[in-house]
């Protein structure tokens, strides 16, 4: 009988504790994420790689400044200081994020004194949950050859570019396929007025500070005479404020249209050059 009473008392005590516990749990606020399906973080470390644009967007009200350099061929040896004596093709660029998904920018490079104006829009963001398995962005650009004394009128100096960037991050590895199209209003000799390419960009994050990257840009279909597909490898360094990209590439040009049109060096035959890019973002 005593055992029975003790059991009853025990059951009641457990019930009471349970009620109090549940009440206490209910009293706290339920924890809810602001964005239940957040996007994947940082597929690539910069909005443009060595030569190919990436799906990485410039955040709203941020200004991304870039300085890009490529030097002469490394096989010039010590006499040419591995290409650094041969002069650099330098591009200075600014990209402003009007929205987290939309940016516009302008850049100017040494070769052809080429000015490019471009816009990029992120249509789709890859999500952590996998509900959106890929990141998708489009970019269009107009290039203006401002080199003096060529005798060309304004329209002959223009070229146009469009690309779709499809990328996915898988763990610390990211891969982007980049079909692209370039059109030149004026070409010399037997060069093609329009070029198609399929850029491949790969990134491997080693840790928060270092990542490796590679790019390959084959021209699909007719190529300009004497030109070859472009390849490049890079080491990316995130210093907190800046992203540095130290790379070897076969092409000395800095945007996709002219990489496809003008690369005359074969990476796999040792015809590559050193270059480095610096990216810095400012908030406004």
């Amino acid at each position: 009988m005593n055992v029975c009473k003790f059991a009853n008392f025990g059951l009641t005590a457990i019930f009471l504790l349970f009620v109090l516990f549940v009440e206490s749990m209910n009293a706290q606020l339920p924890r809810e994420r602001a964005d239940a399906d957040p996007p994947v973080d940082r597929l690539f470390w910069a909005s443009s790689g060595i030569g190919i644009s990436t799906v990485e967007s410039v955040s709203a009200r941020n200004l991304n400044s870039t300085v890009k350099h490529t030097f002469g061929l490394v096989d010039g040896g010590i006499d040419r200081f591995f290409g650094l004596d041969d002069g650099a093709n330098t591009r200075l660029g600014l990209d402003y994020g009007f929205h987290d998904r939309f940016s516009m920018g302008i850049g100017r490079m040494t070769f052809n004194k080429l000015v490019d104006i471009h816009a990029k829009y992120n249509i789709l963001r890859q999500t952590v949950s996998g509900s959106k398995p890929v990141e998708l962005a489009v970019k269009t650009s107009v290039g203006i050859n401002t080199f003096p004394g060529t005798g060309r009128d304004f329209s002959e100096r223009l070229n146009y570019f469009a690309t779709v960037m499809i990328a996915r991050r898988m763990g610390s590895f990211s891969l982007q396929a980049t079909p692209m199209y370039a059109y030149f209003n004026h070409v010399s000799g037997n060069n093609e007025k329009q070029l198609f390419g399929l850029g491949i960009v790969a990134g491997l994050e080693l840790n928060d500070r270092f990542s490796l990257g590679a790019e390959y840009l084959p021209v699909i279909g007719d190529k300009n005479p004497g030109t070859y597909d472009t390849a490049a490898i890079t080491l990316n360094i995130d210093t907190g404020g800046h992203i540095f990209q130290l790379f070897f590439t076969s092409s000395q040009w800095h945007n996709e249209s002219f990489i496809m049109a003008n690369n005359r060096d074969r990476f796999w035959e040792g015809k590559f050059r050193f270059g480095f890019n610096i990216h810095r973002v400012f908030g406004f």
């Binding site: 009293a27 706290q28 606020l29 924890r31 809810e32 994420r33 602001a34 964005d35 957040p38 973080d41 940082r42 410039v58 955040s59 709203a60 009200r61 941020n62 994020g97 987290d100 928060d208 995130d238 907190g240 973002v281 400012f282 908030g283 406004f284």
Partner: peptide, 26 residues
């Protein structure tokens, strides 16, 4: 209940620079 309960989803913190925000989240 004499209960004070607060929480913040840290991914809503913004510092004005998107790249820095992502560094913060990491």
């Amino acid at each position: 209940e004499n209960l004070v309960d607060f929480y913040l989803d840290l991914s809503t913190l913004k510092s004005g620079i998107g790249r820095r925000d992502r560094d913060i989240y990491r």
